[in-house]
């Protein structure tokens, strides 16, 4: 009887240590609250740069504030955000999600993105409907305040004069 009990205790301790180890070794799981949107379209080479690391971006991948979404020469990507804004990028593009804040009750929020290069299509969502120009798109030379519409943006490599 005593033998069985100590055996059970050993198993318990082992189990606990294994769990502890798994917890320490695994990367911190992001809370769902960090999700600003989700990849709905992903073709060719598409990835996300997050905290200096490359993360794959298949359909269903979460997009967070401060992510950079990158497409290769054969890539394109479409993202639906929590306020129903849609953003999509064509090939050879680099898009930074600078800021995404959205209150699903009041629809107040702020949405800042920067297109570093490539092409971008935008359909504005609930944030803009609630507060015009609370969505801003930056390019190297321009800043665009969105009042509610659909539009496209292109950034060519700057030419030295």
């Amino acid at each position: 009887m005593k033998k069985v009990l100590t055996f059970q205790r050993d198993i318990l301790i082992l189990g606990f240590l294994t769990l502890l180890c798994a917890f320490l070794a695994s990367p911190r799981v992001m809370a769902a609250d960090d999700e600003a949107g989700r990849v709905k379209v992903s073709k060719g080479e598409v990835y996300i740069e997050r905290a200096g690391k490359r993360v794959p971006a298949p359909v269903g991948a979460a997009v967070q504030a401060s992510d950079t979404v990158v497409t290769g020469s054969d890539g394109s990507v479409g993202i639906t955000f929590h306020d129903n804004s849609l953003l999509s990028a064509g090939p050879n593009s680099e898009l930074v999600i600078d800021k995404f804040v959205f209150d699903s009750t009041t629809h107040k929020g702020e949405f800042d993105t920067s297109l570093k290069k490539g092409t971008l299509a935008v359909v504005s969502g609930k944030i803009v409907k609630q507060s015009p120009e609370a969505m801003r798109i930056r390019t190297p030379a321009a800043i665009m305040g969105v009042r509610g519409t659909e539009f496209v943006v292109k950034v060519d490599e700057p030419i030295a004069n």
């Binding site: 190297p140 321009a142 665009m144 539009f151 943006v153 292109k154 950034v155 060519d156 700057p158 030419i159």
Partner: peptide, 8 residues
């Protein structure tokens, strides 16, 4: 540098 950013 001369930029060439477009919006339509």
């Amino acid at each position: 540098p001369v930029y060439n950013d477009m919006i339509v």
